[in-house]
Each structure stands twice: as structure tokens, then as C-alpha cells.
């Protein structure tokens, strides 16, 4: 009898362990998606490194006054952006010059930031950490603070088999967490995988989208990752000329990276400076607000003709790109079991 209970207990343990293993975040390539561009050979995914990256992502220790974390401007509930804020915020209530981008499907992107200033995901976090208007901390000091903390030597040891804390490891851990932020469970994805159907309105919106928008917002990632001038006027206060700041080439004037359209429901306001609060404003811009200039995207050279019903249908389709599972995934949320416990110790 005792043996029987032991067997049942062991069986249950195996099932629970398997369930936990499945639940752990990890990287995967969704069905029919292209090959990622991130080089995993230099940073192979390991769940303990992902956990370390997740804790770092949510820890305000990375900022100068320990007040702001990566998640402050990239909240999981908002598809990892700062909802309802036109421009990014920083320490001491400082305001940045661009809308914080939503973070998802980053393994498929070869450049980062609206102007492509960052050439590799591993190096991305350095920019906000050291920017005086964002987290304002020196990266050398971040490493020192991590070394002095009670929490991190253990987490680094679990992740890397020794407790050496280096800049390289810190950045690679942050990358690993961000690489796991895959959004591929929207209604659109279910329809593509033949597990759901669009409504008539969504279907019409999809048809119009493919005709008018998909050359830049290419499926399944809904971006081409190209830099385009989409005809926005220059904000006289921000004077932001986009990619030209990086390349110093006039042909790149007013060009910004084409953003993904996934999870638009959660990630307003829109555009590099967050000037549009609603998707209807975005639609109106493309139909009647495009400003002509030398570098205007060739896709917008001819006006896009859409009547009011068609605009609404496209928006109905765009809303099918919302991925609740992604936004409310507890594996991506604040790691209270680690950070709160550390704060209370």
C-alpha cells in the first residue's frame, strides 16, 4: 500500500515538473516565420540566464537613482512600451525625444531604436541605461552595484556556473529575456494556422491592408525593418530627422524604422514621437496627411484612397493582431518571487 502511494507521488511529481518545464519561457520560432537574425551561437538560450535577464529588466537598480527600470518604459501590460505617453520618461521626471518602442519578436530585428542607432540586441540596453534623460547611470557603475548586491552574485552563479558579474554577462542576460518576448498568438495567427476565422469586416480589412499597407508592414512580423519617411511633418520642438542623425546622409532625412503593427491595441500612442493617440488618426494621416518631401517613401508617392468604411475595416483587421497571451503572460511579468523577496530580506 505504502509503495503504491509512493509511486503515485512520484508520478505526480514528474507531471508537475514537466508542466513547470513547459511553462518556463524559452525561445521558439513560430510556425511559418522566417529564420531569426540573432546569433544564438554566441548567446545560447538558457532558462536560468533568461530568469536573470528578467530580474535585471525589472530592477530599478540599473538607473542612477534606483528609481527606474527597463520596465518603467516597457511595461508588459502594454506590449512592453509606455502606454499613453508620447515621449519616453527618465530619472528626475525628465522627458525624452521619442516614443518608447514596443518590445517583441526582437530576434528578427537586426537594428534597434527608431533610427537604427543600435546594431545588436546585446548592446541595446546600454543606450537607455546610460542616457542622462532615461536611466542616467554609467554601465561601469551598474556592474559595481550588481556586484555589491545580495541578490545578483547568486543569480549570476545559477545562470553562468560562477558568480563573476561582467558587462558582457549582464547584457547577454537582458538579451535572453527580451528574446523570449515572442508575440505570435493573436487572432490573426489563429486564422493563419486555420484555427479561427476572420469576421467579414476583418476579412475586408485584411484585403485592404494587403493592398495598401503590407509593402512596409510585411507579414508575419508586420514590419520590413526598413527605414522610411512616412510623410510626417517635422515637429518644430523636437526637430527630429531620424536616421540621418546616424548616417549623416541627406538621403536618410526623416526616415524612421517601420514599426511592427502587432499589439497596437496595447501600445498607443503611435509614431516615433507618439503624435497620434488613435488608430483613426493614423489612418487619416496615410489617406490625407502625408507631407511630400525628397525622401518620402516611394510606397506613399501616390495617395492611398480609402473611404471611411474601409478605414474602419482596416482598423478591425489591425485589432486582430492583439495578443492577449503575450501581454498577460506571467512568465514575462515582474518577478515578484525574486525581487520582492530580495527587497524584504
Amino acid at each position: 500500500m505504502k509503495r503504491k502511494y509512493t509511486l503515485i507521488f512520484l508520478l505526480l511529481q514528474v507531471i508537475v515538473s514537466a508542466f513547470i518545464a513547459i511553462e518556463k519561457p524559452s525561445f521558439y520560432i513560430p510556425q511559418n516565420w522566417p529564420k531569426p537574425v540573432y546569433n544564438f551561437k554566441r548567446n545560447p538560450i538558457n532558462t536560468d540566464v533568461v530568469t536573470l535577464g528578467r530580474v535585471l529588466f525589472y530592477d530599478p537598480l540599473l538607473s542612477k537613482d534606483n528609481s527606474i527600470s527597463c520596465a518603467s518604459c516597457h511595461s508588459n501590460y502594454n506590449a512592453f512600451t509606455h502606454v499613453d505617453h508620447k515621449l519616453s520618461h527618465g530619472i528626475g521626471d525628465s522627458i525624452g525625444t521619442r516614443n518608447s518602442p514596443a518590445l517583441m519578436n526582437l530576434a528578427w530585428s537586426s537594428t534597434f531604436m527608431w533610427d537604427g542607432a543600435i546594431n545588436h540586441l546585446d548592446m541595446q540596453a546600454l543606450a537607455p541605461i546610460t542616457h542622462p534623460g532615461e536611466m542616467g547611470e554609467s554601465f561601469t557603475n551598474v556592474a559595481e552595484k550588481l556586484k555589491k548586491s545580495k541578490l545578483y552574485p547568486t543569480l549570476f552563479k545559477t545562470a553562468f556556473q560562477d558568480s563573476i558579474i561582467s558587462g558582457e554577462r549582464t547584457l547577454k542576460a537582458l538579451s535572453q529575456f527580451m528574446l523570449t518576448l515572442i508575440s505570435a498568438n493573436s487572432k490573426y495567427d489563429s486564422v493563419m494556422n486555420k484555427q479561427a476565422l476572420f469576421t467579414e469586416q476583418e476579412n475586408n480589412g485584411y484585403r485592404l491592408f494587403k493592398k495598401s499597407c503590407a509593402s512596409c508592414h510585411q507579414e508575419p512580423l508586420f514590419t520590413s525593418y526598413a527605414f522610411k519617411n512616412n510623410g510626417l511633418s517635422v515637429d518644430p520642438d523636437l526637430n527630429d530627422y531620424g536616421r540621418m542623425r546616424i548616417t549623416k546622409l541627406s538621403k536618410d532625412s526623416l526616415k524612421f524604422k517601420v514599426p511592427t503593427l502587432r499589439n497596437l491595441t496595447y501600445s498607443f500612442p503611435y509614431m516615433h514621437d507618439g503624435r497620434f493617440k488613435k488608430l483613426s488618426e493614423v489612418m487619416n494621416h496615410y489617406v490625407s496627411g502625408v507631407q511630400k518631401s525628397k525622401t518620402l517613401s516611394s510606397e506613399l508617392a501616390e495617395p492611398i484612397h480609402l473611404n471611411d468604411n474601409e478605414k474602419v475595416d482596416i482598423i478591425a483587421f489591425l485589432l486582430t493582431l492583439s495578443d492577449k497571451q503575450f501581454v498577460f503572460n506571467p512568465q514575462f511579468a515582474f518577478p515578484k518571487e525574486i525581487l520582492l523577496k530580495a527587497a524584504n530580506d
Binding site: A117, I118, N119, H120, M123, L126, A127, I129, T130, H131, S138, F139, T140, V142, A143, S166, G167, E168, L171, I246
Partner: peptide
């Protein structure tokens, strides 16, 4: 290692 202070952060 970027902690050596020899890496540009605002542009790579």
C-alpha cells in the same frame, strides 16, 4: 567588456 567605458552607447 562595455564596462571598460570604451563603447559608445547612444550609437553603437
Amino acid at each position: 567588456d562595455p564596462t571598460n567605458g570604451m563603447y559608445w552607447t547612444w550609437q553603437n
